[in-house]
Design a protein around this nucleic acid. Structure first.
Lengths: 138, 138
DNA sequence: AAAATAAACGCAACTATGTTGCAATTAAGG
DNA sequence: CCTTAATTGCAACATAGTTGCGTTTATTTT
């Protein structure tokens, strides 16, 4: 099964039409080596109407196909979901790491599972944003 | 030492002039029972010029007097820094918890220190954003 | 206590993203 | 191929981010 067919299946599974724009957006996000900044998506898809990009991204987020990977309220980054996510539940088991030097953001699996406990509180979701210097920039 | 004197000292320590506006902003942030949403700051300080609020907030963030406490790219929340922070290093040992019901955001100390390790990477900062249901809303 | 100075402030202006409505277009199923 | 419901583009509006500049003010110096 080629990549385009895979994206089409992914979309149809979420009751989203597999339009050329959506397939194009997905290939842009998926082919980026790390989490892709919003501005970079815009660059690559400058022929998209601004609102279309906005709505397409929202549809993908809603469908649990991509997720946001922002670190400390900077520009928003996007990445493909690896696990099966839904609108309500983006349950990633990874952390987001941003290199302060090259500004690259990536999804990193953590070996030791992080256990966070807060008394008298029901925890639904935990997002961990790590920043520092990546291997290439040390 | 009363609170206003304390804020004045806090500002001067960072080479920031202790102006009425800055003291007012600090008292608004400090008197809020949890992390205060940006919109709430605006409400309470509607007599501030928009740019002044923007610049004042930035100065406080820069000086390590307040910090952002956003959870998942929603509205930005602000809270007083408890530790001694600087522009480069906001080293909080707490996590940010957002109740999905009442939308209140608070800084929570975690008893068990979170140890995150990523191979071949220098970690400078870790932000943990937790969302769920708070005690009052259960 | 008054003057000097460097910072803070308000205003105008511009940029960018978020968001909605509506008409035109198009994907998907029969 | 035709129907229909979803998607797209355009226009329009809202709000936050950001900069420059002239005026005001907090703090220092005389």
């Amino acid at each position: 099964m080629d990549i385009e067919t895979k994206f089409t299946a992914l979309l149809r599974d979420r009751n989203l039409k597999a339009t050329p724009k959506r397939l194009e957006l997905l290939s842009v996000v998926a082919n980026y080596n790390s989490a892709i900044p919003y501005s970079e998506i815009q660059n690559k898809l400058h022929h998209f109407d601004r609102v279309t990009l906005y709505r397409t991204l929202n549809a993908m987020l809603d469908g649990g196909i991509i997720h946001k990977a922002s670190v400390s309220s900077d520009e928003v980054y996007y990445a493909m979901c690896r696990e099966y996510c839904t609108s309500e539940c983006h349950n990633h088991k990874h952390v987001h790491f941003k290199c302060l030097q090259c500004l690259e953001v990536s999804c990193v699996d953590v070996t030791n599972p992080i256990q966070i406990q807060i008394p008298n509180v029901v925890i639904k979701q935990v997002e961990i944003e790590v920043s520092g210097v990546c291997e290439k920039c040390i």
